[in-house]
Each structure stands twice: as C-alpha cells, then as structure tokens.
Write a protein that binds this DNA or RNA. Structure first.
Length: 453
RNA sequence: GGUCCGGUGGCAGAGUGGCGAUGCAGCGGACUGCAAAUCCGCGUAUGUGGGUUCGAUUCCCGCCCGGACCUCCA
C-alpha cells in the first residue's frame, strides 16, 4: 500500500498522512450555508474531498466523512427578509438543490451530514466550557471569544495578532475587549431565529457550529479538516481556537487541507462580485461528469480559471475517454496501482488523469484488461462509471431538437441504400441533415452508427 | 500596507538538479466514395536579472506580473 502524502496547511509542507487510529480515519469538511444555489466554486471542495474520501476508503478500513449543512446564518435571515419566504423553506429547498447538484457531478454523500440547527445544544456546551476556561466573556447579550487568551491564535493562518490588528478594516464593536475577538453567541430579536441560552434568547456566531459538529461526530481530535482556502482566515483559525481552548488536551484537526479558488477571468468567483456561474447554469451546458472532469484537471491547491471553452474541452475529453470504456463495457474493473500512487501524491489528479488517458488509448486499441483498468481507475476519480449506452439515452433528449431516434434510423437506412447505388450526393445530403440536428454518423465495418456530435 | 501562493508550448496543465509529462486545438499521413472515429507522425514553452553548481525550469536573492487572505465567501 503506497504512502499517502498530503500538504498540511498547518505546517505548510507535505507530510506522510498517519491517522490517529489506522483502523478508522476521521475527516471533516466545511459544507454549504444554505441560502442560495451552489455555484461552481462551491462545487470544487465537494469534488476534491469526494476524491480524497474515495482514496481514503481504499487505503484504510474505515472512514467517517462529515460535511455539515449550516442552516442558521444571517445571510439566510437576510434572504428571508427580502423574499418573504420562511427560513425553514429556504434552507430545506436549498439543501435539496445542493444535494441534487452534487449528485449530478458524481459526488457521493458524506457519511454524516449534520445540520447546525440540530446542534445548538453542543454549541452552548462549548461556549460554557470556553467561559469557564477564561477564553470567552459575555457582554451586552453577546458572548465573545477572547483571542488574547489563546497564545497560539494565528498559528494556522500564519498571522500574528499584530498583523491582524494592522489589517483590521472592520468597525470594532464597543463591547469587544480586543478588536480580534469574535462572536460565539449573539442576541436575537423576536423575528430572528433564536434559542434559549444562559445568555438569553439568541443564535450562534459563524464559527462555533463547525467546532460543535466535528466534536460531536469525530471527537476532540480528528485527522483531516478540509475547506476552501478562503476559509483559512478567519473561519478555520477561529474554529481551531475555540476547539483547542474548549479541549486543552486535544489537537483538534491534525491535517488541514485547503482547495484553491475557482476564478473567472482571473478573479475569484464569488457572490459578492456577481461573477458566479451556478452549477445549474453549467449543467445546462454540459454533462455533470464533464464538470467534474474540468474540476479535476487542475491540482486542488491551485486556482482554477473557469471558462465555457474549458468546459467544452472537458466535454470532448470525456467523450474520448468513454470511447475506451465502450470498447469493452463488460471488462472487469480493476484499480491500477499507478492511479492510487498518483492520488497518494497529494491528490495529484492531473497526473492521475494523464494515466487515465493512457489507459483509454489502450482500451480503444482493443486491450480488454486495460479497459477494465480504465473503468477501475475512473472509479477512484468518480469518473467513467456511467453505462456507455448512456449516450443513446441522452440523444433521446434531442427529440426536442426536431429528430427522434426513429427518424435518425430511417434516414440512416435511406442513406445506406443511396450509398449502395453510389448516390453519394444523396448520402451526403442526409448526413448534412442529421449534422444539423447534432447527430454525427460513423460508417464502420459493421454498418453505420450514430452519436451525439 | 501586511501575510501567503503562483508565473511552463496556441490553450489547459504535471513532473524534474542533467534527453521538458499529458490533454485539447493545429498541421501531415494511414483508413474512408467523402467524412467521422481510430491509429501513426510533427511543431512551438519553463516571466526577468543575478547567485550556487560540472550542469537549474527545478535551489537561493532581487525585480516585474498575476491571484488569494487580512471583511461575508468553498
């Protein structure tokens, strides 16, 4: 079994991954705040950590993968206030949309998907521990974390408290002892969601939910914590501070993994910049699997610049890979060591894909066993698992574009007759007609076949 | 301004102290009535100036450029 090497943000270097308990790996990944449709940037960590989960399941006997749903947040409240839709309806609908979108790009569900609102009790318990330990204080209905009480504050994100202060451009609330102190609990008005607590009716701050849910499902110390690089500060820094102070003997997450940002024209895709493309938009233009391939073509720590041209390129590449699968659909899947090794190299998906292309070429050339290895290698990446005949099903959808399967087959018959009488003008006319409907004909030794172009 | 990351062929994108992967696109060829698909072949790249070294794209320093974070954000 190859050694898994991962780049740990905490140490900023590549490290051999050694789980606390080799018989049970524990991983936590920050999930979505459910107030709006997921965009392509939101999909990247999901796909990246889905590949990691598949790899970990192969390398270790057991994995518990937790990815939360944050369903209490001021952005959700704001959305409800704007639209008039009930908060519960927004979060339920958005969660369902998220599940559907992630399934469309081949991401398996995590083992546990806890919702923040179901863990307010744990959050309150954590906050009480922090107050008892002198790491938090109540002020004007809020409870704040005292960054000065934690000497290691800033270690994860590589900042000193002074630097943070120097860069602070945010207005400092008067009840904060230190500008860097952050909210653990805040008071809610009647209209806002709230829970009874020792500090009155209120709601949790942004970071505490992850500390609560990782603690509940993975314990005080666990192996891997993942998320987007934009979460490194303040979210992960604060999360770590809370958890380490609440459990002074723990180490919280041993390995921190951060994926790079998705860019559009060289700039980060984000809701606030308005340059985002929802997954729905992307899925209307290409297969979910092509989107997945697109996301895996770049190493997870590098930025990835999205373009529609890049998506269609991924679509072309995927089609070609599937031609390898189609060459021997019944071949027994087998996972090549080379694929595992590529992924063990800090999840080097570009290297893994290069190997996949080589397997596809072998499979197209008629090597049956290679076709099985292609299928098995694809499985580790969450690719190439569809029935090759899926193309025909997709073509059925082209009915709306003016041709049915029966039309296509009838035209092919006419064309075959024309070709037999060497009426090539007629044959070419038929091919051109089908091409107009996005159908490409291929004259092979066994007759004429067709596919989506 | 501070911190961090990165600059590789037309595009995308890896690796590596010593012949610079892979894919897409392009070009040539085989095959085809013509195509498509497939196969074979070809071309062009390591931002810039120094340093270390027998040798640097790879290590070190400066510069230029780009991005992220420092504020809600995957």
């Amino acid at each position: 079994m190859p050694e898994l090497v991962l780049h740990n943000t905490l140490t900023r270097r590549r490290e051999t991954f050694v789980p606390q308990d080799p018989s049970h790996v524990r991983m936590y990944v920050c999930g979505p705040t459910v107030y709006d449709l997921a965009h392509l940037g939101n999909a990247r960590p999901v796909v990246v950590f889905d590949v990691l989960a598949r790899l970990l399941r192969r390398l270790f006997p057991r994995l518990t993968y937790v990815r939360n749903i944050t369903d209490v947040d001021d952005k959700i409240n704001a959305r409800a206030a704007e639209s008039g839709e009930a908060i519960g309806d927004i979060t339920r609908r958005t969660t369902a949309d998220f599940h559907a979108d992630m399934a469309a790009i081949g991401a398996l569900p995590p083992d546990i998907e806890p919702r923040a609102t179901a863990h307010v009790g744990e959050m309150i318990a954590l906050i009480e521990r922090l107050i008892a330990g002198g790491h938090a204080y109540a002020a004007e209905g809020h409870v704040l974390f005292a960054v000065a009480s934690f000497a290691q504050y800033g270690r994860l994100s590589g900042r000193s408290p002074d630097e943070l202060l120097a860069g602070a451009r945010v207005e400092v609330a008067p009840y904060k002892r230190d500008p860097g102190d952050f909210v653990l609990w805040k008071p809610s008005t009647e209209e806002l969601p709230g829970w009874d607590s020792p500090w009155g009716r209120g709601r949790p701050g942004w970071h505490i939910e992850c500390s609560a849910m990782s603690w509940r499902y993975l314990g005080e110390t666990f192996d891997i914590h993942g998320g987007g690089s934009d979460l490194l500060f303040p979210h992960h820094e604060n999360e770590a501070a809370q958890s380490l102070c609440a459990f002074p003997d723990s180490r919280f997450a041993l390995t921190w993994l951060h994926n790079g940002m998705l860019l559009v024209n060289g700039e980060k895709m984000s809701k606030s910049l308005g340059n985002f493309v929802t997954l729905r938009d992307v899925l209307a233009a290409g297969e979910g699997e092509a989107v997945r391939l697109l996301l895996l073509k770049t190493h997870y720590r590098s930025p990835l610049d999205f373009s529609w041209a890049a998506l269609s390129e991924a679509q072309r590449e995927l089609d070609r890979l599937y031609r390898g699968v189609e060459a021997a659909p019944d071949a027994e899947a087998e996972t090549p060591d080379e694929m595992v090794e590529a992924l063990c190299d800090d999840l080097n998906t570009p290297r893994a894909l290069a190997y996949l292309y080589a397997l596809a070429a072998g499979a197209r050339a008629g090597n049956h066993r290679t076709a099985g290895r292609l299928r098995g290698a694809g499985a580790l990446l969450g690719l190439l698992q569809a029935d090759p005949a899926r193309r025909l099903q997709e073509i059925e959808q082209l009915n709306a574009r003016g041709v049915t399967r029966a039309d296509i087959e009838a035209l092919i018959e006419q064309r075959t007759s024309a070709r037999l009488t060497r009426d090539f003008a007629r044959a070419d006319a038929i091919r051109a007609e089908l091409a107009g409907h996005g159908i490409v004909l291929e004259d092979g030794s066994g007759g004429t076949t067709w596919r989506r172009g």
